[in-house]
Write a protein that binds this DNA or RNA. Structure first.
Lengths: 292, 292
DNA sequence: TGTTATTCATAGATTTGATCTATAGCTCCT
DNA sequence: AGGAGCTATAGATCAAATCTATGAATAACA
């Protein structure tokens, strides 16, 4: 027995409506087609599934048994189809994003809000971790896309460059004597510096910059959150190295001011990573559209 | 979305084996066929169901969702197919027989025993009732076949004549003076007669016979079971009207003897009734084969 | 009690679309 | 670099699903 499963669909409708004619119209077929399909099923089993009479058809004992299975099966299929349609319309599904550092809070948040407002039924899963962790999650298929600082060069990944970020040193009123001054890196090192934790991309970048001038940047304080970085600078515990865009509010208020340096700090770019040659989930591709 | 359900079978195997090639061989198809089928499904949903790589395929998020439904659905179908095969082989199912009078015990029993021995998994349902009750059960589809005394003439029924039964009057030793004598119906009426209950076919038949000779047969005792009919005759409470084949043992032992009459009692036939133009269940048709 | 309408079954023609073969492209492994 | 696995694509083929037309049986109705 190796039936075409299409026959079960016909059987289901014939049994459900009690009429081959009605089943035919439900399936957009002609009645002889349905008649033939039922006969095929019956022959394949060597059993009679319906009693036929001039009012329609009725299940036999054996037909009832078959129906008890097929009904459930067909209902599952129709649920599956509804679910697929929901996934397609983003009335369902989930979007899994990996983000390193504080990009979530300071860069992604508005997009996430818009997205969630537009597709409230899509579950948002935010995984935060270091850049290598995010890459690993992506490769294992645990997230749909990653948002990290460039540069990333991995042949398996496709990276789309997003906005540009400018890191800078900021201080609070405790160091207001530096306002307006242009410092050398050397001079900066006279002050207590507050940096983000060792494994962050930003930290590595600035350390390298100092090294390229033969200087060794050693933080007085080391923290694991951008919020703390800002807070400590405001309290005057030192000069924090932060992303300018993330302290826009404080700079405007004047609770923090940017330290001018005599050398430029190269800008950083945010990159959106997805797996190369892998299809995007419907949720993720809609999100990328939104970002662009 | 109006998919050919056959595609789900292909999807199921592709997901289950993680390989289009293996799915193809499981389904006795070629790999391009499977590839094409999956693509059709994906297009119909507007979603990607599989990640393809050189090792095979893996379900996407959306594919996983679909699989969670389709797997159950396919398992139900394969159970259904197994069940149908079982019904066909009589490894399952039920046989529902309606019988009037005592035909079950005295006529059907050996067949039922053989049938049950041969197909122990088939459930036997025996419904006993009067002839009209049996006919009603048959027409309502509550039994597969009925076993009653002929004649039956109902255009909806197909009646197969089975063995012939000869009714007769029997008595026990209390009336041994009648042994060897040939009685007229008139003479018989001098003795107390024991008959089966009013609504039985046998009772009607013998009453009519007497009436055709202008005689009125009125029983001294009326009982509802053939066993009682026999037992009462043996105890000498009267002359019982019974089916000769059902008292074969007693006649041979000599505990009962048959009363000779000067007029013949027309033989009765057992009829096997089934619904005309209705398919027989597998269980019932096997049983009819056995009886013939 | 004809008559009509509705049911399912059957026969044969048609055409769709599933399946095949052949081949290309890709990735991993030796 | 070459081979062996995998999937994708293109185009041809052909089986089988579907259709139209019709028949036969039954129920409903006038």
């Amino acid at each position: 027995m190796n039936n075409n499963y299409e026959l079960y669909k016909v059987f289901y409708w014939a049994a459900k409506t009690g009429s081959l004619t009605q089943a035919a119209s439900a399936l957009y077929l002609t009645q002889p087609s349905v008649s033939h399909a039922i006969k095929q099923l019956e022959n394949s089993f060597g059993l009679t599934l319906f009693y036929r009479n001039s009012k329609g058809v009725a299940l036999t004992q054996e037909g009832e048994v078959l129906y008890s299975y097929i009904e459930k099966s067909q209902i599952l299929i129709s649920l599956a189809e509804k679910q697929m349609a929901a996934l397609k319309n983003l009335d369902s599904g989930e979007l899994r994003i990996g983000g390193s550092d504080s990009l979530f809070k300071h860069y992604m948040l508005p997009y996430l809000e818009t997205y969630h407002q537009q597709y409230p039924a899509v579950g948002l899963h935010l995984n935060h971790g270091t850049t290598p962790e995010i890459i690993a999650l992506l490769k294992e298929g645990n997230i749909d896309l990653g948002v990290v600082r460039m540069p990333i060069s991995d042949p398996q990944l496709e990276v789309r460059e997003s906005i540009q970020l400018q890191d800078c040193f900021v201080a609070g009123s405790r160091y207001s004597e530096l306002k307006g001054m242009v410092l050398t890196l050397d001079m900066l090192l006279q002050y207590p510096v507050i940096l983000f934790s060792r494994n962050s991309r930003a930290r590595m970048a600035i350390t390298e910059l100092f090294q390229s001038y033969g200087l060794n940047l050693k933080p007085e304080i080391e923290v694991g959150s951008v919020d703390l970085l800002i807070e400590l600078a405001r309290k005057g515990l030192g000069i924090s190295y932060v992303t300018r865009e993330f302290v826009a509010k404080e700079l405007e208020e004047g609770t923090l001011f940017e330290i001018q340096l005599d050398v430029p700090i190269p800008p950083a770019h945010v990159g959106i990573m997805i797996m190369r040659n892998m299809p995007l989930s419907a949720t993720a591709s809609k999100f990328l559209e939104l970002i662009r």
